[in-house]
């Protein structure tokens, strides 16, 4: 555990709490992509299948349970409790364009050809693009509630912080590198660059998040 990894995980935790807070206080899931949230559940479930077979630490175990449970709860809020506030007609990204290629990549790139390991690879590839339906929705509506942008910023920060974490681990753990996690992680972080630009130049200056028409 290093400071980048810890801050990254805390940022990830914060992003989910911000999202829950947004839904509960506005009593609405307007502006949130159900598809992205459903992809995150898929990511967590396929990655954490080892939760009961490989013990890493209490920290690791607790976080995994929290990520699965909280994201399932968000799906419940969106599909049941605040269903009328969710507009599927703007959440139109075709997730099969993500699931198919990620499945193919996982079959091609994995550390062992076992069910668990191929699913682990799949989850890594899928996480890297799971935010696309959300970003696509943002692009379509051209604006976002400030709290939604804080959610995205925290999620992006989590990914960005994993990069110095890997560099740190490379130098402190005898040159170890994880090519699958690093490649997917770099792609994932790159997807946030446009968003970050608008977030830093507008939202943090007190303006509304609006994309140029």
């Amino acid at each position: 555990m290093n400071i980048f990894r810890l801050l990254g995980d805390l940022s990830h935790l914060a992003s989910i709490l911000i999202l829950l807070h947004k839904i509960q206080t506005t009593r609405s899931c307007r502006g949130i992509s159900f598809k992205t949230q459903a992809l995150y559940v898929t990511v967590f479930v396929t990655r954490y299948l080892d939760i009961f077979t490989d013990w890493v630490s209490l920290y690791n175990f607790t976080m995994k349970i929290f990520f699965i449970a909280s994201t399932c709860y968000i799906l419940y809020l969106m599909k049941m409790k605040y269903r009328p506030t969710h507009d599927p007609s703007i959440d139109t990204f075709r997730v099969e364009y993500l699931l198919g290629p990620c499945a193919l990549l996982a079959l091609l790139f994995h550390y062992r050809f076992t069910v668990l390991e191929v699913l682990w690879s799949f989850s890594i590839f899928l996480e890297s693009v799971a935010i696309l339906p959300q970003l696509f929705m943002l692009q379509r509506t051209g604006e976002a509630e400030t709290i939604t942008t804080h959610y995205l910023a925290a999620l992006g920060a989590y990914r960005a912080l994993y990069i110095p974490n890997w560099i740190y681990r490379y130098f402190t753990e005898s040159g170890q590198i994880d090519p699958i996690a690093v490649t997917a992680g770099l792609v994932q972080t790159a997807l946030y660059l446009d968003f970050f630009y608008v977030y830093f130049t507008k939202v943090l200056q007190g303006q509304k998040f609006e994309l140029p028409a």
Partner: peptide, 10 residues
């Protein structure tokens, strides 16, 4: 599972 760096991350 393997002991790749990513396996003990979240």
């Amino acid at each position: 599972s393997t002991d790749s760096v990513g396996h003990d991350e979240l």
